[in-house]
């Protein structure tokens, strides 16, 4: 029996919706056979508390859709969207510019830039905090614009100059002013978001060499820091732009 048989009324309808939602997405990972025991129906019937009157079905389903459907959480590592992934898709040899060097690399059609950088070119500075465009820890520059490399297909940027945190040092090893300032201000805490913060800050200073603190925080707002080191990153940006002594 499937989900849709699980219960009647609202719950049944809801489960039906979830089920069709699941069926509609080719990346869903597992086949679920629910043994629809009477226990389940009983348990739903037993919940004596009325549900929040403000919880409408539409509202909740929206929430569930947004949450990616719990049961399906295992998949979707390589693809940048929910599209169907052709099994055994053929890799093509691409020539891309990374940190000023020309790199030749075999790239699958659905491969993300984060994947290419981290697992094929060994550039692990860009981190994968979420792999779904939420955190910014994978930020790199493409033609001086900061992008989420987890949500960008490598094929999309083949004609752009990619800059990662590993490419910031000068040829003589001198740190980029943002890197030096981040050390001085003890900006990173755990460091997992740091390369993303740095790349967004580099992009900002390229377009606006003397940003206000307010401008800096807006520019970096796509980069989450779970450690909450925001104040220190902003101090770093202000120092690197010569506005903090």
């Amino acid at each position: 029996m499937g989900f849709s048989h699980a219960a009647s009324g609202f719950k049944g309808e809801f489960c039906g919706r979830v089920y069709s939602l699941i069926k509609g997405r080719s990346w869903i990972t597992l086949v679920v056979l629910i043994k629809c025991s009477s226990l389940y129906t009983t348990c739903l019937g037993r919940l004596s508390q009325p549900v929040n009157p403000k919880l409408t079905r539409r509202r909740f389903i929206k929430g569930v859709i947004a949450s990616g459907v719990a049961a399906a959480s295992t998949s979707l590592w390589y693809t940048a969207s929910g599209q169907s992934r052709p099994a055994g898709a053929v890799e093509r040899l691409l020539t891309i510019s990374v940190n000023g060097q020309t790199r030749r690399v075999d790239v699958a059609p659905q491969e993300t830039l984060a994947h290419t950088l981290r697992y094929k070119l060994g550039l692990t500075g860009a981190k994968l905090g979420c792999n779904r465009g939420e955190c910014g820890s994978c930020t790199v520059l493409a033609d001086d614009v900061n992008i989420y490399s987890c949500s960008t297909l490598t094929h999309e940027v083949k004609n752009k100059a990619i800059l990662t945190v590993e490419g910031l040092r000068a040829a003589d090893g001198t740190l980029h002013p943002i890197q030096a300032a981040f050390i001085q201000e003890l900006s990173p805490q755990c460091g997992f978001c740091t390369s993303g913060q740095i790349m967004s800050a580099v992009a900002l200073l390229k377009s606006n060499p003397r940003p206000t603190r307010e401008e800096a925080r807006n520019a970096l707002s796509g980069n989450l820091c779970r450690c909450g080191a925001y104040d220190h990153y902003l101090n770093g940006v202000m120092r690197a732009s010569g506005q903090l002594s």
């Binding site: 549900v51 947004a66 949450s67 719990a70 979420c130 939420e134 707002s221 989450l224 902003l234």
Partner: peptide, 30 residues
């Protein structure tokens, strides 16, 4: 956490739905 009491599903699995404070949720100076 927000869990649907009827189906046991969490509604805010992601970071933004969670929701972790961002640069814009904290003071400009501390």
């Amino acid at each position: 956490h927000v869990y649907d009491p009827q189906n046991g599903l969490p509604a805010n699995v992601g970071l933004y739905q969670g929701k972790l404070p961002t640069y814009l949720d904290v003071p400009l100076h501390m």
